[in-house]
Amino acid sequence: MRLDLSGKTALVTGSTQGIGLAIAQSLARAGARVAVNGRTRDKVEKAIEAIEGDAISAPGDISTDEGTEQVLRAVPDADILVNNLGIFGAQDPLEITDDDWRRYFEVNVLAAVRLTRAYLPKMTAKGWGRIQYIASDSAVVIPAEMIHYGMSKTALLGVSRGFAKAAAGTGVTVNCVMAGPTHTGGVEDFVYQLVDKDLPWDEAQREFMRRHRPQSLLQRLIEPEEIANMVVYLSSPLASATTGGAVRVDGGYVDSILP
């Protein structure tokens, strides 16, 4: 299979680190011109240095109207939109405040909706485009320690399916990528919230998977590049018949045949 994205422009939100950076790197290696997004220009420029290929700067906090407009000025047209930006964290369910609920919805859901609303009409006018939302196994297996995060990822499944219907017959595909427990810096911090902070990382990871993610068939954290591989495929012309889907890269975590 030849995944050639030459001539395509891709915007990856929240792409200065972790899964987002891995996605940006992989899209660039496939030939795409990649717009790197983060809240500050310094972080964006540092991330661009780690990308081999054509990358441009698109700083802006897309959880706000002003930040979204800043990104849209930097990237007025995109062939591929990867809505990766997301926040997470462990919190007692009864201590999640109204402001917390609103913040998770604003950042994890509404930011992606704004950009979809901006780019989808241009994609449909061209007759080609790819929109993806990075969701999570938490969308269907709500974690007791972060139900506000799970709620936001469940919402993305609905958003993705709905926009796929809005793009029906246009040549534009819209999908969710359901990532399983993935090894990022933020996840390392999260793991140490839940296991003994004095454990070496390899032991801490095993303890976390055993106690908190025992359903995983991989029995390890997924590497960001493994998520990126699926995103690049779904961004390519080869995935032209895959739309409206919730495609799992979860290491077999979700214990069902369908999401």
Rank of each mutant, 00 (worst) to 15 (best):
V159D: 03
Y104F: 14
Q132D: 11
I222N: 00
T116E: 05
G171D: 09
I227T: 06
V187G: 10
R210T: 15
Q132R: 06
P214F: 12
K126H: 14
R213L: 10
A144W: 05
C176Q: 01
G162A: 04
A135S: 15
E207V: 02
A164Q: 10
W201Y: 15
E225R: 12
T173P: 02
V191F: 07
R206H: 15
L110W: 14
R130W: 11
V187D: 08
K197V: 00
Q219I: 02
L115K: 07
G186N: 09
T154P: 07
V172C: 10
L94H: 12
Y149M: 06
V191N: 05
E225I: 14
F190P: 03
R210G: 12
I131D: 00
A125Q: 13
I96R: 04
E226P: 04
E106D: 13
L217W: 11
D198C: 02
E95Q: 13
N108L: 01
L218F: 15
M146N: 12
M151V: 12
Y133W: 13
A118T: 08
N175T: 13
D99C: 05
T116S: 03
D202N: 15
T184Q: 05
V107L: 04
R220E: 03
T173M: 10
P200E: 07
E145F: 05
G158E: 08
A112G: 11
R102T: 09
L120C: 01
H212V: 06
V159L: 00
H183W: 11
E106R: 03
K126V: 14
R102F: 11
Q215S: 15
S152L: 02
P200M: 11
G169S: 01
T182C: 07
L221P: 01
A179D: 01
P143R: 02
I134H: 01
D92K: 01
R102P: 04
A166F: 12
A135Q: 00
M146Y: 10
L199K: 08
R206M: 10
F208P: 00
E95S: 08
E225K: 10
P121Q: 06
E95C: 03
P181R: 07
A118P: 04
V187C: 10
H212L: 14
N175F: 15
R114F: 00
R210Y: 14
D92E: 05
Q205Y: 14
D189Y: 08
S152F: 09
G129Q: 07
W101F: 13
L156D: 06
A125H: 04
Y119K: 01
A155V: 04
T170F: 06
